[in-house]
Design a protein around this nucleic acid. Structure first.
Lengths: 224, 224
DNA sequence: GCATTTCTGTACTATACAGTACACTTTGGC
DNA sequence: GCCAAAGTGTACTGTATAGTACAGAAATGC
């Protein structure tokens, strides 16, 4: 599928890169169906025949740019953890911020819209992006939560679940709202508040203290 | 925009309804660009001219079905709260379940894909759907959280934020994963576990008990 | 520097589709 | 039943676009 041969010649590599860059912009801006190869060629400056020879056609080009974007934008999500300072709150705030700083870029949002919108036609690409991004980020966070719990710094019963919960809270509805184009883009200040709020709720919950039971009880004690 | 006149005659109303139903199916299945009016007409059985007269064209028809779907699918999200039993955990589990039971239907997921994917071309429709659905649901939950806090049953500093956090956790990554088409559709059992897990974390948090401070402190005490 | 491979430009094909026109049929109020 | 309004069917127009063909230019490797 993608660009079959890695790259034949120097000119070829440059051409591939130019086509990919143009295609990325065009697909992100217009979506798969509304994007036209003439638009891509107009931007990249190559020739129609080369595009077909190198990428096989519109669908192949689309797959190629999604893979490209996955590597450039989405994969870094999975490595959004670093320097584990001793305080879990600080670690979580840092992780949340890096997560959001990648997720809320124009390119990242456009990629989400594109992939989610085209899932019907390209289901495997959705899987590709999801696994490399959000799922990988959750895995890394899960590792941290497990270690912190073993060290007695947190009390997390199910690290995988907790990691996903935390990341969803960090996104808050800011991400969804922005995907829907509802309201203006959130400021970095709002994003920061959202991250800190998520950390607070994640760590301490919303129950009144006098009602709090031993941690393990409510976790399994909520019935029906 | 939408179907201008409410409905002129009986046959007319039936025709409108048939066109809308067909258009809904076609747009949800193919997306805006890939959907064709011939497909719609083939399904609804009317004539091309009527469609144009009643809905003004492809874009008008699209706007009409989005409004229709908002009323039928998304708006109920906003009313997903009922019977406030005394136990906050039970109320939250009930709310979360109803929320997810609407959100995870095939139609609801397809609508999300459609609206998110077409936000570029129809930003106002995204706003429409978001406000009527997720935002309205968060508002109702926020009301409950505020009341429960006033009654001393919960300790929620910012009910609006908390409501959004809770709903995001309830969705977990199940919703996003399914939107991306990654992995099989979650079972109702998985959804249930996700909801209960969200309630547990929302109420009690992940901090170890011996590290827990007074609730108000960490909420504002997380710096940088 | 020459042969070969790769890229380019242009022109062409086939098709699909939104939107329009118009003559004809059905419906529904009276 | 009549007749105005609404709906139908078909055919047509114009355009946009994916994909193909091919001859020529350019670069690459030796």
């Amino acid at each position: 599928m993608s660009s079959a041969a890695p790259a034949p010649t120097i000119r070829g590599r440059a051409r591939d890169a130019a086509i990919l860059e143009a295609a990325r912009a065009v697909f992100l801006e217009h979506g798969f169906e509304a994007a036209t190869l003439d638009l891509v060629i107009g931007r990249s400056g190559g020739s129609r025949a080369t595009l077909y020879q190198r990428f096989g056609g519109k669908a192949g080009l689309f797959a190629a740019i999604i893979r490209d974007l996955r590597d450039k934008i989405v994969a870094p999500l999975g490595t959004a953890a670093d320097g584990e300072r001793s305080n879990p709150a600080e670690v979580l705030v840092g992780f949340g911020r890096r997560f959001m700083s990648i997720l809320m870029t124009d390119e990242s949002l456009a990629l989400y819209r594109l992939v989610i919108g085209e899932t019907r036609h390209f289901p495997e690409l959705g899987r590709l992006v999801f696994e490399a991004g959000p799922a990988a980020a959750a895995e890394r966070l899960s590792d941290y939560l497990r270690r912190a719990t073993q060290q007695g710094r947190l009390a997390v019963a199910d690290p995988d679940l907790a990691a996903r919960q935390f990341l969803e809270m960090v996104k808050g509805d800011l991400h969804t709202r922005t995907l829907f184009g509802a309201g203006r883009r959130p400021s970095s200040r709002e994003i920061d508040d959202c991250v800190r709020g998520a950390v607070a709720t994640f760590l301490y919950g919303a129950a009144t203290r006098r009602r709090a039971r031993r941690r393990s009880a409510p976790r399994t004690g909520i019935r029906s």
